[in-house]
Design a protein around this nucleic acid. Structure first.
Length: 506
RNA sequence: CGGGCCGUAGCGCAGUCUGGCUAGCGCGCUUCGUUCGGGACGAAGAGGUCGGUGGUUCAAAUCCACUCGGCCCGACCA
């Protein structure tokens, strides 16, 4: 109390958003930088959130007919070379294994030995190695479709990294499917995009825009790339997931061929789709505040923590017993299809310090139990999302707990939706567009801009120009056009079919 | 790969320009005491190859050379 702390996290979002982001991660003990450049250590609290994401996504994949499998970490260099656009996109960021062992050097150091005949690439994505495998599996139309997902790590040698948002190694899932027809593959591509959007909104409480990428932003080797785009609290866009219709590009380069009902040999149609630990970054930047992380109940490792408050030794045993029985009662309840996760924090810490540690970790509900609560059969409870503190009868608290968690979940989504709506504008002139995306203070840019919905005629020149001038990109061409149909391109004056989403992005 | 900055305790830093007592400070950590319902206070402790190698010197965290690593700005980023 003596310490005049206004917020648990310094700096605040308004003061320095990127630094705030780093401090939230640190304070919540989600992850830290490792000794390996660009690679992070995901700590237990962060990994538990990832496990919850995995569990939920995995169930959705299974429910849409997919099964899991695992493919190698290493890809022969020649495989990557097969697809021209793919090489172009990934060659610059591949880790390459060239030797198979180490030998003692003259000064006691180890030097690589046993050069490989063909270097191996550490997978940046697995289209080529999985495609090569599928080529062996597919003979007949009866072998199709193949609907497989893998949970894996991938490596992309990024120049500049940020925890969760862009790391050299990251965890993800990648679905790779093979179909007999283009239509079926296109349906699959959009089905999985819907799965991602459903997960983002209902589990992460993060509203997203589903859309199609422009030619310039498309996945290397894809015919069509679809994405979900979310708005972070600095109003920048984050691509939260992608689903690609690969056409026959990889089927041709990997030789995935089958005989159709008429006995004709033809190339198959493939898709791939993925989301990564970047979603944790998205969750942080969507919901957290100046007191730290806020985890949506659906993803929270603990839904609720019980903090025993021991004021004197006389009541200690009674408080402890009360906490234990409350925990047992809560643990028997269910929320969102799983038992409510409840923990008692019995650490020998001061009350304030202990409470703040859970605020910073973003636990949805905190309960403090002392002699007063024991005496009156009540609980003192605080919501992380609103900060609201209440004294409730124990019976009422327990009976309404699942609903309270859902209220928090709903509130987070509603809050994020309102934020996005408040920072989304329709712009109808190039001047207004440039004004919207230009900071008032160029030396120390304030948080400005947001999502701009504007007409664009498909001109790659205009797309390149705004990227150069403003660092603004077309995030996507929305699948659901709520921007009232056709109009005029604000850059060229040519006709435009619909508005696109423009924003600065991560 | 170009331009700039920085490596001193777990973290954040001072000291380097102008070489000189036993290398300091804050936070954190350990122990004890008093405290405890929203981030306590006091006392006593532990913790350092000053990024590395070589050189100059009676003497190097400090000066010189080389080298390794990191950060920022560019370029790059499904």
């Amino acid at each position: 109390m003596n310490k005049a702390v206004k917020t648990a996290i310094t700096p605040t979002r308004a003061e320095n958003y990127p630094e705030w982001y780093q401090q939230v991660i640190k304070a919540a003990e989600l992850a830290e930088n490792s000794d390996v450049r660009g690679c992070m250590v995901i700590k237990p609290w962060g990994y538990a959130i990832w496990e919850n994401m995995q569990r939920s996504l995995d169930a959705k994949f299974k429910a849409t007919g997919h099964v899991n499998a695992y493919f190698p970490l290493f890809i022969p260099k020649s495989y990557i070379e097969k697809e021209a656009a793919h090489v172009e996109g990934f060659a610059k960021e591949c880790a390459v294994v060239t030797h198979s062992r180490l030998e003692a050097g003259p000064d006691g150091s180890l030097i690589p030995a046993g050069p490989l005949d063909e270097p191996l690439i550490v997978r940046p994505t697995s289209e080529t190695i999985i495609g090569a495998t599928y080529a062996k599996w597919v003979r007949s139309y009866r072998d199709l479709p193949i609907l497989i997902n893998q949970w894996a790590n991938v490596v992309r040698w990024e120049m500049r990294t940020r925890l969760f948002l862009r790391t050299a190694e990251f965890l993800w899932q990648e679905g790779h499917t093979v179909h007999a027809t283009a239509e079926e593959a296109q349906e699959e591509t959009l089905r999985m995009l819907d799965v991602y959007a459903d997960f983002a909104e209902n589990q992460m409480a993060m509203p997203v825009i589903k859309g199609r990428k422009t030619d310039g932003e498309r996945f290397p080797g894809a015919v069509d790339t679809f994405c979900i785009e979310a708005m972070m609290q600095d109003r920048k866009a984050l691509q939260a997931g992608t689903s690609h219709f690969l056409g026959q590009n990889f089927a041709k380069s990997c030789n995935i061929e089958f005989q159709n009902e008429n006995g004709q040999l033809q190339h198959a149609w493939t898709t791939s789709w993925g989301v990564s630990t970047r979603l944790i970054g998205a969750m942080i930047m969507t919901h957290s505040d100046d007191d730290g992380l806020i985890v949506p109940p659906q993803l929270a490792p603990h839904h609720i923590v019980i903090l025993p408050v021991h004021r004197d030794e006389a009541s200690r045993a009674a408080v402890q017993t009360y906490c234990e029985s409350l925990r047992a009662e809560i643990a028997a309840l269910h929320y969102a299809g799983r038992p409510i996760e409840v923990a008692i924090d019995g650490r020998e810490l001061r009350g304030g310090e202990k409470a703040w540690s859970w605020v910073k970790k973003g636990v949805p509900l905190r309960v403090e139990i002392g002699a007063r609560e024991v005496a009156s059969e009540s609980v003192f409870t605080a919501r992380r999302d609103t900060g609201e503190k209440r004294n409730l009868s124990r019976g009422h608290f327990v009976a309404t707990l699942p609903q309270t968690l859902q209220d928090i979940q709903d509130n987070l989504l509603a809050r994020a939706q309102a934020f996005r709506a408040a920072n989304t504008v329709e712009l109808d002139s190039k001047d207004a567009f440039y004004a919207y995306f230009t900071p008032e203070n160029k030396a120390k840019p304030e948080i400005h801009g947001g999502f701009a919905l504007a007409h664009w005629d498909g001109s790659a020149e205009a797309e390149a120009q705004i990227k150069k001038d403003l660092n603004v990109t077309i995030r996507c061409i929305p699948l659901e056009d709520n921007g009232n149909g056709a109009g005029t391109c604000i850059f060229t004056g040519n006709p435009s079919k619909q508005r696109c989403v423009f924003a600065k992005s991560y």
